[in-house]
């Protein structure tokens, strides 16, 4: 039997979660989408789906994983990609202000562009593995795919990046030889 949950208490609980975690989840969504507007749209939809399912998420310690999975699915869904294709005629890397950090020599912008050129699913694998630092099993669970698929997607994505990345990022520092 489904326990009766007081609606106002549920909303308070959900609001607390929003305040605590939506910033982190927006960052993950942004890295997968590569676009702030799309990331906000994906996160808003994911939060709405989480809200509809809130009573069914009995283990509140697993909410992050649940939301991450919705974000990844939303970002890679056929429906959203269809809208995306219409809104942006090409699948090119989005143009934006070049990012400059304290070590900037142009490498980061180049590498970021390469990450954004990866297929959505592979990009999601890369973000979850190298930003969220999830294990292969956790990444597989978050994306609803097998560990083997995570391995192959990550391997192919890294091979692509390695092939196109500046030489000094190659293993054993090829560019500096």
């Amino acid at each position: 039997m489904t326990p009766v949950v007081d609606a106002s208490a549920r909303d308070v609980e959900f609001t607390d979660y929003l305040a605590a975690r939506q910033g982190a989840m927006l960052r993950t969504a942004y890295l997968i989408c590569g676009d702030q507007h799309q990331a906000e749209d994906v996160l808003q939809t994911a939060l709405a789906k989480l809200y509809l399912a809130w009573d069914k998420v009995h283990d509140k310690h697993a909410v992050d994983a649940y939301l991450r999975r919705i974000i990844a699915n939303e970002a890679t869904s056929l429906w959203r990609r269809a809208w995306h294709r219409k809104e942006r005629a090409t699948d090119d890397v989005p143009e934006g202000s070049p990012h400059h950090d304290r070590y900037d020599d142009g490498t980061d912008d180049e590498l970021w562009a390469l990450v954004q050129s990866l297929p959505r699913r592979a990009r999601a694998v890369i973000v979850l593995r190298y930003y969220e630092q999830l294990s292969e099993a956790e990444t597989a669970d978050a994306l609803g795919i097998s560990v083997g698929t995570v391995k192959s997607q990550a391997s192919r994505a890294m091979a692509t990046l390695r092939e196109r990345a500046p030489a000094h990022l190659h293993p054993r520092g090829g560019g500096h030889a």
């Binding site: 929003l18 990012h99 590498l111 930003y131 890294m158």
Partner: peptide, 27 residues
């Protein structure tokens, strides 16, 4: 070095994200 750079890159890019907050009504 590629994996290390990738990790740092993603963290820096994520830190640059403007923080939009959705309230309960929006959700």
């Amino acid at each position: 070095p590629l994996q290390e750079t990738l990790h740092l890159l993603l963290r820096e890019r994520a830190d640059d994200v403007a923080h939009t907050r959705f309230g309960l009504d929006v959700v």
